[in-house]
Each structure stands twice: as structure tokens, then as C-alpha cells.
Design a binder for these strands. Sequence first.
DNA 1: CGTGAATTTGATTTAGCTCAAGCGGGGTGG
DNA 2: CCACCCCGCTTGAGCTAAATCAAATTCACG
Lengths: 238, 238
Amino acid sequence: MLSKFVALSLDEEQAIRLIPCTTKRFAGGDTLVREGKRPAAAFLLVSGIAYRYRHLANGKRQIFGYLLPGDLCDVQFMINDEIDHDIGLLTDAEVAMFSAPEIMHCGRTFPNIRQAFLKMMRAESASLHEWLLNAGQRSAPQRLAHFICEISGRLHELGQVNQDGTYFIPLTQIEIADTMGMTVVHVSRCMQQFRRNDLVQWSKRQLNVMDADGLRKVADLDGGRIAPALAEPLALAV
Amino acid sequence: MLSKFVALSLDEEQAIRLIPCTTKRFAGGDTLVREGKRPAAAFLLVSGIAYRYRHLANGKRQIFGYLLPGDLCDVQFMINDEIDHDIGLLTDAEVAMFSAPEIMHCGRTFPNIRQAFLKMMRAESASLHEWLLNAGQRSAPQRLAHFICEISGRLHELGQVNQDGTYFIPLTQIEIADTMGMTVVHVSRCMQQFRRNDLVQWSKRQLNVMDADGLRKVADLDGGRIAPALAEPLALAV
DNA sequence: CGTGAATTTGATTTAGCTCAAGCGGGGTGG
DNA sequence: CCACCCCGCTTGAGCTAAATCAAATTCACG
């Protein structure tokens, strides 16, 4: 039901398979996890794309991150604590839900598994650092370039590339704006700039990175670190 | 040598005390942890103030967070992985260093202790969410007000308040600027604004919050959550 | 006292926001 | 099958928060 990219022994893999788990289907637009709740299960995104976000009283919204297939919604379950943001679905999705106690037990028995969870948390935090750095210190086009590098990179790792090298990313410019802390209008303008410079083409939810190096140069990714590598995600042999 | 605010049994407390630990003194300005390193020990800040940050090629710097007495520098030690930022000291400091394997073992034996570590990680990430939200969606004065609320709140929890209700916070406006993603000049102007409105007085590293409610209103902290409560920090009975 | 760092002030510029309107396309209902 | 409409995207014309540049001033400390 579930395998890993991380080095896991057969025992460990077996243990994961034995965890009781129900798979549910959700529709795009659904809210998977609601702020303030204490989820009793660990959610693993099997297919689809989700995102973490929070709304402000004035209607503004900040998006904190995206979840791709194989990502755990929340390592939060390891801590019985309220979650501080919502998780919504961009697309229809399949979500595998593991009983928290069971998975905890599994972690307790197999250090490697627990280690994998911790790595995920760390990856989350690395990504947040990167995003904060972006928001605080880089110009809008830089941030945008940076983001495109990150998301396409992650999809690439997952092998979610079309034959023609494009990516299906169902984000509207509204989401992009709320991710980058900029206006829809400005997102549009930056994007056109990129298009004019033959860096990327992103329309109709199809992203085409035409000049990866150029894009990376804009993103100032040379000196800096590459897009925050998410810890080797849990894969799935459905 | 070390006690906790979190509910810990005597056994657990005892276990912590038994972990071999050396205390070192550092001077303000020292770099405690360097990006890319894999610290073999867990650092606990006993006294002093430290901060996480990263430099960009162009000389800009983003500060990711501050460490107050009782904070663990990095739960990172639980994962043997490179750290993605530097940690520097604002002041002279005492740092207690625990052998990573020992503390890991301790965590393995006492679930409560491990739980406390996880809570710390979660607190870290909650704080990052808050900061990202700030950077992305709020105006400079709002961010600043927000930050003042957070840092003074944390110091308050630690009981680090002067008799006259002021706080000693050794940040220059340069650090504040690099924290908030704004210019020193602009920090100065915002601060003066606050001063003019009798909200806060912050000079000579002494912070005086004169109108907490007013400040919170500026910070838009009503609807939103209060300053990201750091998990009950490890306290210290030196 | 003197020197360098931190803060303040003023003048100017600009990146990015706001407002407002037009456009395209795809989905729905008649 | 067509008409309409809604949603996402684009364009244009100001406007403004915050950056930049450049000094002056105050402060900390040897």
C-alpha cells in the first residue's frame, strides 16, 4: 500500500503496510483540515494538490505551502496540538488516513520511520525559511522565479512531468499572489515579463519552463540554496 | 541543572539531569552554529539572546527568529542533517551542550520528553507561519507592532521584565529591519510614529510598552492569534 | 575627547498597489 | 446550439508606501 524512497528495511516497510488506513476521495475546493482542530489521524496525500493557508480578518490570505502527492499533511499528529492553519484542496484528491496511535507506535518501534517523519518536519521548516527570506528580501520577480523553480522542481522529482516537458499546476494567479504576498495584477505583469523573455510560459494551468537557467538566474538561486528539497517523500504503490 | 515547565515526572526530570552536559560561555557577536554544519550536540541557551539568520549574496540578511533563555537552538540534532541557517549571539551567553545521542536516548525512554521536543519544533513552525503572514500581508507598522508584541510577550513569560515594566532587548534597528524585511530608515520612522502616539518607547535597548492594547490594535492582533506562543520552554535551575 | 556605530532627518525615486475597465473562454441553462 | 455570464487574466492610469541616497546628530566607549 505504501512504500518509501528513504532507505527502509523490509521489516519497516512491512510495518507501514500493516497500519490500518482508509483512503478517502475529496473534491477540489474542499477543506481538508480546519484551523484549531486536533486531527486524530495522519493524512497522506495520495493524489491531488493541497495547500496550507490562513485568512486574515481583512480578507487577505497567506498561503504557507503546497502539498504534493506523497506529502504528509501534518506531522502535527505526533503532537496532540491544535493546528494553526487550514489545509485546502486545489484539485480532487485521494487522501490516505492512518490512525495516529498506530503510526506513532510504528515510529516508536522503527527509528528509521520516526526519522523520516522528523525529516519531513525539517523540510517544512526549511521551506518556510526560504519563503520568509523571499518575502523579506527579494523583489517580486525574484520571488516569483524562485517559486516557479521550487514547485516545478518538486513536481519533477515526483516524475509528474508531461511528455512535452510541461507541468500541470492548477494554480490561478490569485493563489500565486497570495503565496507571494503580491497583487494579482502584479503577478500577471511579472509573468508576462517572463514570457516576453522566453523564460517560462504559464497559462491554462500548464507551466512550461523554457529557460531554466535563465529563470534560476533571475531567482538568484545561484549563490543561494536550491529550492528547499522536501525530504524524500513517502511514495505510494497504491 | 535543568528543570521543566512541562509536566514531567520525577523520573523524567532525573533523567534529564543525568545527561552529560557542559556549559560554555560565548561572547556577543559570536556565531554559535554555522550553516551547513551537523551539530553533534543539542544547544540549550541558558542566558543571553541569539538569533537565526541567513545572508544573501547581495549582502542582505533575513532573520528567522530569536532564541531566548530556555530555548533549544536546534531540535535539528534529532535529525542528523545539515542546518540551513546560522545562529548568532546578540549578547554574551551561556550555552549548555548536551550530547545528542544521550538526549536522543532519553527521548526514546521518556515519551514526554520527546513530546516536549516536538512541541518546540511545532512552536518554531507556528512562529514562522506568523512571520510569513506578516511579511506577506501586513504593512510595515503592523509588522513592527506585531513583532514588538511577540518579543515582549515572550520575555514577559520568562519573567524578564524590569521593575519599571520595561524590557531589555539588545536589538539595534538594523536587526529589526532585517527581521521585518524593511529598511533601517523606515524602521526608525515607524518607531517614531509609535513613540509619538505613546504606544511604545524603544531606545537604548530598553523597550517600554506604554499602550499594549493600542499596540495590539495596530498589530491587528485582535482577530488573529496572539504572538506565537513558544512551547513552554525548558527552564533552568542552573 | 574622539571615533565609529546607531539613529534621525530630509529629499527624491520607485516598485508595487489601487482602481477601473476590457477581454476571453468555458460552462450552464434555455 | 446559442447566449450569457462568471471567472481568471490583462491593460492602463494614477497613487503611495517604502526604498534610496545623503547628511546631520546623537550615543557608546576607549
